[in-house]
Computed example of a mutant assay.
Amino acid sequence: MDLGILLHALTPSLDSVAILVTFFTYLAIFGSILPGKVVQGVVLRNGTRLHYQCNGLLSLLLLVGLLGVRARMNFISPAVISHRGLELLSTTFIFSVLVTLVLYVAGSRSHNQGSSLKAHITRNLIHDWFFFVRAGMMGWLLINLSILAKSVLDGLLSRSMILYQTFSALYILNYFAYEEYMTSTWDIIAERLGFMVGGFCVTSWWLLRNKVELTTAAVIANCIVFLIGYLVFRGANKQKHMFKMNPKALIWGKPPKVIGGKLLASGYCSSTAFYHLNESVNFSICDWHCYYLGDLLLALSFSLPCGISSPIPYFYPIYLLILLIWRERRDEARCAEKYRELWAEYCRLVPWRILPYFY
């Protein structure tokens, strides 16, 4: 592509700004007024607690329905996002940089000279729950649906595109169906909100421009990877919540094995992960090692429909692997310092970090 054409395509337009503003406005308004279960978040380090209104699935379905009606009435093109992909990318990038700068300035002026785990400028609007869970996941589905619409309109719909779209849609819908589980994850309760690389949609963009013919065996293998990833991902998350609500709850039909009354070594935790029960408040924190395995398998299943002709569609699973290995090492150092002898005992019983018998 000519450099001039590329720069022109990357230049934000009023339409791209309007699309982004409309999207965030919808999330802010309907995320506040739609009914949903209010879940009490965990106690943060500063002693405060956030509350989350879990209406994400309803909000997502309503948004898709409204856009579908508008597309049916020819008010908008169902492929509008795919038509304006590059300018929306640059618009979102600029917006993300501005939000990051606002957070940096706010953090530098706070009493602890750092970013906050609790939104204090816009109450509950600007925090991980809004940007990571809502904007990120819903935006991913909208981009995918727009690319799907363009592939249908252009007569380029392939088995690979159908496979990717099915996997990602199931993952996103399931994600919001169990939205409550996100309230105790590390991304929400401990990670600082800021600039972060995202690569969810690389696969769909690549498939739009590259035709891949998959064999039946490849499709079946891809489905197996997705299914295993989903079972590990959802199963580990469910066990975490069971342990959070009741540390004595049965896991796989048996009483949980707990080391020192704090570290869970049962179920999925018996092979690749652990949960630990915070001493000061009644909740559990999952340090996700088995959760990581499920996440990685799911990420891989999103890229496998592209075959092996190019490394580009595998950007997201590669990026996620690097990120999770770094995070796992950080988690281990933190827990080794906190639990000392208990952690050494846990590592003796559960020697594998993420993938049993390999790592």
Rank of each mutant, 00 (worst) to 15 (best):
E279I: 09
P255V: 00
T272Y: 07
N282E: 09
N278P: 00
A249D: 03
T272L: 02
E213G: 01
N278R: 15
K257E: 10
G199Y: 14
S309Y: 03
V197T: 05
Q239I: 06
F302N: 10
A218S: 09
L227F: 13
I228V: 15
L300E: 07
S266E: 00
L193Q: 07
G253V: 01
Y275E: 01
Y291Q: 08
L193E: 05
I220A: 10
E213Y: 10
W252C: 01
Y230F: 14
L214T: 04
I228S: 07
L208V: 02
P256D: 06
L208K: 02
V202P: 01
G294V: 12
S303T: 08
R209Y: 12
F283G: 01
L263M: 10
D187Y: 13
A299E: 12
V212P: 05
I228P: 00
R234W: 14
I251S: 02
M245W: 00
L297E: 05
K240I: 01
V212H: 08
D295T: 15
C223A: 14
E279H: 13
S301T: 14
L263E: 00
N246Y: 03
R209C: 02
R192M: 11
E279Y: 11
C223L: 10
L250G: 02
F283M: 07
C286Y: 07
I259R: 13
Y268M: 09
N278V: 11
A236Q: 13
Q239N: 04
